[in-house]
């Protein structure tokens, strides 16, 4: 349990008369890099360029990338056919509003927005406790654990690793898969979508929040703990206040992602506009499909705009 020595006193450094300010190239630097056989910078970047080229080539081969197929007459005809079938898009009141409003396309848009908002709120609610339990400076390292018994710190470490594992799992499973799972649990509809987005994003946000907590300066936390504050008080008043609006900004960015994700959750029956995308594709109703795609486009652009505005006001 050792903290690094504190920074040297600046007063002496700045006032010291014998410090030269001229910058001469340090001959030892080149020597050491040559000794290590790394070569000159241009040689090194050439090596990296070759390595990168190989990686891209292998990836293209595995992914069966074949640009010729894309520009072949057949492909062009198919795409043209799709566009021709989709024009003009279906803006009929029957399609947009449905018979009872709740079965129209516009309602599906509202539902998509609602799923994304509720999903992110759920995600934040889950992410906060998980982040606190997943940050090592809260559970077992840093100023709050000086002189703490080895067993207590081991238990804290275990809790932290376990929480980090849970967070990894939550975000490793794609939201679409979570959606599929929750549809079987709570039935078709937007609630399954809310749960899916909430759980997946809890994993994403929880990791980010925990990383931010761990990145805070230990000095204020030490100062707060040293006053006799409890660990929980130290977390609240020594660590958390150091978090910056960047965190809120990132959460808003995740909401943007959530709106994009919410547009396809309907593929597995978890509500939102995705239902219209998948139904119109399978029924070959291209005019309706194009309308839905336009709606998704407007939705995503609007979300980007709103989120950017909010973030600008924050930072």
């Amino acid at each position: 349990m050792t903290a690094p020595p504190r920074s040297p006193d600046r007063s002496t450094e700045t006032r010291s008369p014998d410090r030269g300010v001229t910058c001469r190239p340090d001959p030892t630097i080149r020597e050491s890099s040559e000794e290590l056989g790394r070569g000159t910078p241009s040689k090194r970047s050439l090596t990296w360029l070759i390595v990168l080229g190989i990686i891209v080539g292998v990836a293209a081969w595995v992914a069966e990338v074949d640009p010729i197929t894309l520009v072949s007459t057949d492909a062009r005809q198919q795409m043209w056919q799709f566009v021709a079938d989709g024009v003009p898009p279906d803006f009929s009141a029957e399609y947009l509003l449905g018979r009872t409003v709740r079965d129209g396309l516009l309602w599906a848009i509202v539902e998509t927005i609602a799923i994304s908002i509720a999903g992110i709120v759920l995600a934040v609610g889950l992410a906060i406790p998980l982040a606190v339990a997943g940050a090592s400076n809260v559970t077992h390292t840093g100023p709050m654990y000086t002189g703490t018994s080895g067993f207590r710190r081991y238990a804290g470490h275990l809790l932290q690793r376990l929480t980090r594992g849970i967070l990894s799992f939550l975000r490793a499973v794609p939201d679409l898969v979570w959606g599929f799972l929750f549809v079987t649990a709570v039935g078709l509809g937007p609630f399954a979508g809310v749960l899916a987005l909430g759980i997946h994003n809890a994993g994403v946000l929880g990791k980010i929040y925990a990383d931010f907590l761990e990145d805070t300066d230990p000095a204020p936390a030490e100062a707060v703990y040293a006053t006799g504050a409890t660990r929980l008080q130290t977390v609240f008043h020594g660590i958390v206040p150091q978090l910056t609006p960047t965190l809120v900004s990132y959460t808003l960015y995740r909401w943007e992602c959530a709106i994009r994700a919410a547009t396809i959750l309907g593929f597995v029956g978890a509500g939102g506009i995705g239902y219209y995308l998948t139904v119109t594709i399978t029924r070959l109703q291209y005019q309706k499909l194009v309308t839905a795609i336009i709606a998704v486009f407007v939705l995503v652009v609007a979300a980007d705009y709103i989120s950017a505005r909010l973030r600008r006001n924050l930072v």
Binding site: R6, S7, D9, P220, A223, V224, P241, Q242, T244
Partner: peptide, 11 residues
């Protein structure tokens, strides 16, 4: 302890 450079909560 009065910490060097304060160790205050900036925000």
């Amino acid at each position: 302890l009065v910490y060097q450079e304060g160790a205050l909560l900036e925000r």
